[in-house]
Design a binder for these strands. Structure first.
Lengths: 243, 243
DNA sequence: GCCGATTTGTCCGTATGTATC
DNA sequence: CGATACATACGGACAAATCGG
């Protein structure tokens, strides 16, 4: 049950593009035709098309039409041994995923934490370290901090299953936005102990701040990935490219 | 000379947010007020706000207002030694940037190249390897391939300056979109020779396909970054998070 | 708990400009 | 030049969510 008409159109077009009913480099039916197909206004069609452009599926060309730039190749030869995220990989490859809680504590943010995470000094936090495994092999070390006043009631048991499920299904809080930063860092002693990096001396590190529906930051996370299990994809449009 | 009204509004609000005239966690003036301020329709204001949301500057809350979630911290303590891109870093940090062409060749895509890059077998390409230095220190090894039929006339001299400047200013071709993929890979022998990775045995690798204004892919690039010189930022909104 | 005011979310229709063919 | 197709902008209507009295 999609809430809005433009989301329905977006999803329908997305599936048709992925199934290559509309193939790479072809031109979609003009907006005027889509207006008829979906029985809606031109604005609504354009909104769906704009979303598809955002994820790198189509590109509008003034005076010509809307061209499909999605390539199924994305999922085959382009990627060699990498994965997108823990969850995606686990479900896509039907691997047994497993989470082990290494540390579960409650702390109060000091100045060091404030400058590193963005949580104000004095904020009460849950501090959690978890090891994520695929088919028994450790691949990601997650360090989470949650604002206790926004996300109360986290237990070690919840951390062992899924904190996000708890947030959405139990607390009924909306997860709205996440800012992420990717870097490559040297392995630490903790990494050595938990992740078995072998002869790799670096990890892919993703730090993120996550905001709820009210625009309040409730989570800071650092995910330390073994290189084999990391692949991040992104689409940059003109606006971002040029300033 | 911004082309459109909504871009002007976007840029103006962006500056005000960056200067913290509108500060972190505050609520912007309601759309109805911005309509008056900028003397435009509500749709136009909303479009500018939507763009600000895309880059992680604001977040709209139904029934409440539009909250600023931009943090100046982003540019200070959060990033240590990392850079965003070669160009940005070079100009932002006022470092001497320098590009050295290591290899300049013309090749024809075979099946291996097709499956790796997305260029059709038989496509004539420029193949270029360049070493980018900041203040004399090598930090990125770029491997570029350009479709000769779309971007003709590249010379070693142009490669030594800026190919993108050539494309935009001489060929007057629009650079519209780029799909990127980030991974962490082991250093190769070429990396060792060119980049002096020291005791790092991994690099941050960004592979990208770039499309012009007509929706045609004209470039495939692999950028191999020394870990110290790599930091990538990103904002994910609800639509992407769920799906 | 309800109601009304405020604010954002969705959708429609129309007009005009710009680029391509 | 005219037809087609996307780009920008305006205006209006109603729904959904929040908040204060």
């Amino acid at each position: 049950m999609p809430k809005s008409k433009y989301t329905e159109i977006y999803k329908d077009l997305k599936l048709r593009i992925e199934s290559e009913e509309y193939e790479y480099q072809s031109i979609l039916p003009p907006e005027s035709a889509l207006v008829v197909t979906y029985d809606c206004s031109r604005n609504t069609v354009r909104r769906a098309l704009a979303q598809l452009a955002e994820i790198g599926y189509v590109q509008a060309i003034n005076g010509v039409g809307v061209r499909v730039v999605y390539q199924p190749i994305d999922k085959a030869s382009f990627v060699i041994g990498g994965i997108e995220t823990f969850k995606e990989s686990a479900s896509r490859n039907k691997l047994n995923s497993n989470t082990e809680v290494i540390m579960f504590a409650e702390i109060t943010a000091d100045e060091r934490i404030q400058s590193r995470t963005g949580f104000k000094k004095g904020t009460e936090l849950y501090y959690i370290q978890r090891l994520r495994k695929l088919d028994g092999k450790p691949c990601i070390l997650d360090i989470n901090m949650f604002d206790k006043s926004i996300v109360p009631g986290i237990t070690e048991e919840i951390a062992n299953k899924s904190i996000y499920e708890y947030i959405e299904n139990e607390l009924h809080m909306e997860i709205a936005m996440s800012k992420r930063k990717m870097t490559v860092e040297r392995v630490t002693e903790v990494d050595m102990k938990c992740l078995n990096p072998g002869d790799y001396n670096c990890l892919a590190v993703v730090t993120s701040q996550t905001f709820n529906g009210m625009g309040l930051m409730f989570e800071y996370t650092q995910s330390r990935h073994l290189p084999e299990y990391f692949c991040f994809m992104d689409t940059a449009t003109r606006a971002e490219l040029h300033d």
